[in-house]
């Protein structure tokens, strides 16, 4: 089985901090890959590299065999890699629905100057995604007015509206009330499966990892310390010591 997204020999350092020192990681089709590791290990940096926001000092990242490094986030998004953010990145002065429609219009290549955004044929789709993540009730609200949990979900919905092949998420449920976390992740993972979206998520909550990931990679001191099925990785004494704490 060939990897969909593949990173090799990634090296990046910020001053004296080594975030990646020979990272090799593969994402296969249909994966729900969780990346775990101590704070500041470089997990988010990895998402930044895969989406063209940062350039590593060395290494290669390929998507379906073609090189991603040197491409802009915009070009990479168009290739089918979407990203959701740890801190929600929304258009604060537009409504939730307008946020979604803009994403859908971009995906469909509808950036014509005189059609109405509200009338694009993808509207139904966009509303369905909002419904899926449980945000239909706030679609007419300004993005700036939403509570943190909803902002987080709309952020993910925006990425989903791009109909990506791969979705990269940075702590998808941080900030979401813990009573709702699992319900939301259940629908999210269900939606990803239904749309055949491969996902990678950076996560700190080990319960989330064991429930939703099919593979786990442990990122520590700039390397992939361990990789494998959640049950196996999370019970590894070394991983417990460095990441989970105990």
């Amino acid at each position: 089985m060939t990897a969909l997204l593949s990173a090799r020999d990634i090296e990046i350092r910020f001053g004296g901090v080594v975030a990646a020192d020979g990272i090799a990681l593969d994402v296969f089709e249909g994966d729900n890959l969780a990346i775990i590791g101590p704070n500041g290990a470089g997990k988010t940096t990895f998402l930044n590299i895969c989406t063209g926001y940062l350039a590593p000092q060395a290494g290669r990242v390929t998507f379906k065999g073609s090189d991603l490094l040197g491409q802009s986030p915009r070009a990479i998004t168009r290739l089918g890699i979407a990203r959701a953010f740890q801190i929600p990145q929304l258009f604060a002065e537009q409504t939730v629905l307008e946020n979604m429609l803009l994403a859908a219009a971009s995906r469909a290549g509808r950036l014509a100057p005189f059609s109405r955004l509200a009338d694009i044929p993808e509207r139904e789709d966009a509303e369905a995604i909002l419904h899926q993540v449980g945000c239909s009730d706030v679609k007419e609200r300004m993005a700036s007015e939403l509570p943190e949990g909803k902002r987080k979900l709309v952020d993910i919905a925006l990425a989903l509206a791009l109909k990506p092949t791969v979705l990269l998420m940075d702590e998808p449920t941080s900030g979401v009330a813990s009573s709702e976390k699992f319900a939301i992740m259940d629908t999210l993972i269900g939606a990803l499966r239904a749309q055949h979206v491969t996902s990678v998520f950076v996560e700190h909550d080990m319960e989330m990892v064991s429930r939703y990931a099919n593979r786990v990679a442990v990122w520590s001191t700039g390397r992939i310390q361990k990789e494998g099925a959640p049950a196996e990785v999370l019970s590894d004494p070394e991983v417990i010591r460095t990441v989970i704490g105990g």
């Binding site: 986030p73 998004t77 953010f85 990145q89 258009f91 604060a92 803009l102 971009s106 995906r107 791009l162």
Partner: peptide, 10 residues
Amino acid sequence: TNETRVEYLG
């Protein structure tokens, strides 16, 4: 409001 996200929408 968010130029980075505009870029990330393609």
